[in-house]
Design a protein around this nucleic acid. Structure first.
Lengths: 329, 329
DNA sequence: AACAGTTATGTAATCCATTACATTAATACC
DNA sequence: GGTATTAATGTAATGGATTACATAACTGTT
């Protein structure tokens, strides 16, 4: 495999000139450029990025930390990240952390060791102290889940308000016994969405009952199903359920269906995220739409700006309530 | 940020010795090693991978080409790839090609330019000539979709046999009017699955009807829905549908449900892949289970072996018929 | 103590491209 | 034509590690 020296030799110029041609600098004569380009073609030369990146101290690789690639919520964000990254000549290295600190550390090392230029973290279970420390020396953005006052810029939505709207929608439909399937309260979004849920209830003089607050370990389908199973065992069942993720909601939906009850007639269901599948279920799912693609795209832009040394501000994006069959008759 | 020279200086040794400590070579005295390790700690030194990789001519990055990250079939494979890659100190760079040759080329350049050590391609729409040419100089494995006699090693399942079993299952249940929702016949897997479908019919003396063969552009939900819409307009509707992907099947399911018909009583449905969602639908989906995680894991192993210069053989993995509600009453 | 044989450490080349600075060539102007 | 500018090209240092080969420091033996 040819290197820049051989190209220079064949073209009868110096390596500097070849490099200039490679980097589209304007100070090269047309005829010199042509000579060089011919040599490049003849030798089938491809510049070695390891050499270039070593010299310029960049890798043009962005690290994406997600807890699980199985959740379509994240894959949609990734699409946004990738498209934006690509347009600025960055590539994305995918890291499914499984919320496992060891795995996370392997990936942190990549940025410490200059193999990645920055990180977009979407893992709610991330060890935030480690992340904050790393952020002092490297470029990091949080996406979706974030830590307040950590100094790490983030892009997210207003979770409290979104949950408020979702639950308010149920209240308006006449529901008073509304359960929530939440995830672990150690996560900020879980606390925020719970707050929104409670605010909507309070506003209409409904007292939240403890038995209507369910917590799951993860956001998956099975967890939603299990939670719903518990709910269905209650003496006085709720007439509506708000789940903090579509996967949970779809699990709940399935459990309700299997128990012979009907959605939305017996129990209405609202989800959160608006993943593609929320429109494929039977019945389709009412949910809060997060601008996932945009979130990813903005996160990528923020990160690239940060890498370039600009100061970046955190952003809160709009959400939207999508009304579908699971709440309307 | 410190480099190996500064560490050597502080420890009072040469860079070679530091490098030896870094790479766990046994020829270093205990006391020298300790001196070096202390210097490393004191300076907070992290070896620069760009430097190392330039020297050793490797990047320890594997490229994963998938058509769409939205299809859970691929994300499950990716899990297998990532876990195996990680265990061998490789990282994965994710490339959603959207079956767009331009995008694909951007990523090919990464391996041409030494920023990636090899490629696992899962894109059925890949330009196979380009891939074959690239495979002459670089390590490439195909996963799931492949090209016969291309010389590129692959890991896949027996598509013909799998489709045969799926359709045979329907025949055994008494169905005679069985439609197939296939994807474009330019894909090998589409031709193979069609062949399996036809073989199962032929074996029971059923003549395939043209009106029962539908083709879609992509494997998504909407495409399945559209195809099913056409099927439902037929004079003589089929009593069963075999879709070559779960997403298509779920789309079909939705369309049948919406039309007021019942699955499986009016029309039975069989999918292909066994993605997680196939068990979340209502009714749950009978499908062919592909060993996605294992496929990914093996593909990664094959690729790493190939990178190391070993010769690798193509592998065909087992599949399984998963019977669920969409075919049984 | 002297020498051979090991073992540990050091020196310097190498991987490949970028770029500050030096030099040469080309153009402008009197 | 000769000098002053400007534009094009070249030289060589640089980024940070690895490693073949050279050398120094031991260990063991007589």
């Amino acid at each position: 495999m040819a290197n820049i020296h051989q190209v220079a030799m064949l073209a009868g110029v110096s390596v500097a000139t070849v490099s200039r041609v490679l980097n589209q600098q304007e100070t090269v004569t047309a005829k010199t450029r042509i000579k060089v380009e011919e040599a490049i073609k003849k030798l089938n030369y491809e510049p070695n990025l390891l050499g270039r990146n070593l010299r310029t101290s960049e890798s043009r690789i962005l690290l994406i930390l997600i807890p699980s690639i199985s959740n379509p919520f994240y894959t949609e964000i990734i699409k946004g990240i990738e498209t934006t990254a690509l347009s600025q000549h960055y590539n994305i290295l995918l890291c499914e952390t499984d919320s496992n600190p060891e795995r996370e550390n392997i990936y942190y090392d990549l940025v410490r060791k200059k193999m990645a230029d920055g990180i977009i973290s979407m893992d709610p279970a991330v060890n935030i102290e480690t992340l904050i420390k790393l952020a002092q020396t490297h470029s990091i953005i949080q996406c979706s889940e974030y830590a307040e006052d950590s100094g790490i810029p983030y892009v997210t939505i207003n979770n409290e308000e979104a949950a408020y709207r979702a639950v308010k929608h149920l209240v308006k439909l006449g529901h008073e016994r509304i359960a929530i399937i939440n995830s672990d309260e150690k996560f900020l979004y879980a606390r925020q969405r719970l707050a929104g849920y409670k605010r909507a209830l309070a506003e209409h003089g409904i007292n939240p009952r403890d038995s209507y607050s369910l917590y799951t370990h993860q956001l998956g389908f099975d967890y939603g199903k299990q939670a719903m199973k518990k709910i269905l065992k209650l003496e006085e069942k709720p007439t509506a359920v708000f789940a903090v993720s579509d996967l949970l909601a779809i699990g709940a939906l399935k459990e309700i269906n299997q128990s012979g009850l009907n959605v939305p007639d017996d129990i209405a269901v609202v989800g959160f995220d608006n993943i593609d599948f929320s429109n494929m279920t039977n019945p389709t799912l009412t949910t809060i739409s997060q601008p996932m693609y945009k979130m990813g795209s903005i996160a990528a832009e923020m990160l690239i700006d940060k890498i370039k040394g600009k100061t970046v501000e955190s952003i809160t994006l709009d959400h939207e309530l999508i009304t579908r069959e699971s709440t309307s008759g």
